[in-house]
């Protein structure tokens, strides 16, 4: 399926659906697909695992929200500011960690997320602490807020389109080949002159910046952000989970992953969430383990492999029957 076709399908769905429940679902599918796609750039294409993308997400949400509340800036600018700040942070963390092999990037991003959670709770003068920040509802394109859920759905779809466009750009240019070379064999890549560190760090910064834009989207949609909701370990896990289950290093993977997992998450939350928030994750853990053990490549590569082999078998059968 092509990128354009998917976009048309998404946009068509947003115009055709009138039920607010389904619009909400489409919004979250696009939202999580966009964020997982952003994670995929560094986690999938370069193979550097981040367990703390919620740090970039929350930083983006707080930057644009504070820009609106304090300086009355449009979230277009606030979001851009967030993306730039977060790109710098992602760049710095990646520069320190990605020189090394081993689990350091995963650890550092995880630690960064915990650090920012503490800062957001403690620095009350800036963030209002654990009470969080509330955005006034002022619909309009300039404020990136919409009267209808379909409007927000288009916003999320737009973000997904942007992140996917970046991903496709990576996949179809020389950069994609460089990243793949680094992922497959760093030493070999370096020996033929690929500037390994530079590309890894760039990918991390781009991934972080796009994740920050997702944070802005989240803040605009819910109009409330709290430290514990935007600097949340579940967000980090969810992003990685969607990208891994869908298929890493493949532009369709995050989208397919989100189409499967987001409704599952929402359904489980509706079913189990009455008792405690986050309980649906008890099902996520085993899903993650089973998928890593049995389809480590993810759904998309696995399905396309299956289709290819079926086609080959059919072809062989046809040739056999002809002879």
């Amino acid at each position: 399926m092509s990128f354009g076709g998917l976009l048309a399908l998404g946009a068509g769905a947003l115009f055709a659906i009138s039920s607010s429940f389904w619009l909400d679902l489409v919004f979250w599918i696009c939202f999580w697909a966009a964020l997982a796609q952003a994670w995929n750039i560094v986690g999938g294409y370069v193979g550097q695992l981040s367990l703390g993308h919620t740090a970039f997400f929350g930083l983006g949400a707080y930057t644009s929200t504070l820009a609106t509340l304090r300086w009355d800036l449009t979230p277009w600018l606030g979001g851009l500011m967030g993306a730039l700040i977060v790109a710098a942070v992602g760049f710095a963390v990646a520069l320190v960690c990605l020189r090394l092999r081993g689990p350091f990037f995963a650890l550092a991003t995880l630690a960064l997320a915990e650090l920012l959670l503490i800062v957001a709770v403690q620095w009350r003068a800036l963030t209002e602490g654990s009470e969080g920040l509330t955005l006034p509802f002022r619909p309009g394109l300039a404020n990136l807020m919409f009267e209808t859920k379909a409007g927000f759905g288009l916003y999320a779809l737009g973000l997904l389109a942007l992140v996917t466009a970046v991903t496709l750009l990576v996949e179809h240019t020389r950069v994609g080949l460089l990243l793949q070379a680094i992922k497959n064999d760093e030493d070999a890549a370096r020996s033929v002159g690929v500037r390994v560190l530079r590309w890894k760090v760039t990918a991390a910064a781009v991934s972080a910046a796009l994740t920050a834009l997702g944070g802005t989207l989240y803040a605009q949609y819910l109009q409330v952000i709290e430290p514990s909701s935007v600097f949340n370990w579940e967000v980090s896990v969810q992003l990685a989970l969607i990208a891994i289950i869908g298929g890493r290093g493949n532009w369709l993977g995050a989208i397919v992953g989100s189409v499967f997992l987001t409704p599952l998450a929402i359904g489980l939350r509706a079913w189990l969430g009455g008792s405690y928030a986050g309980l649906h994750l008890v099902v996520y853990g085993p899903i993650l383990i089973v998928s890593v053990l049995f389809i480590p490549e993810g759904i998309v590569p696995w399905a396309s492999e299956w289709m290819r082999s079926r086609r080959a078998r059919r072809h062989a059968a046809a040739v056999g029957a002809g002879a």
């Binding site: 689990p103 896990v237 008890v282 996520y284 853990g285 993650l288 383990i289 890593v292």
Partner: peptide, 16 residues
């Protein structure tokens, strides 16, 4: 990747 996410999956499962 597989190793880290098996342990992350276990962590998520045990937490919840």
């Amino acid at each position: 990747m597989a190793q880290i996410f098996v342990t992350v999956g276990l962590a998520v499962f045990l937490q919840n």
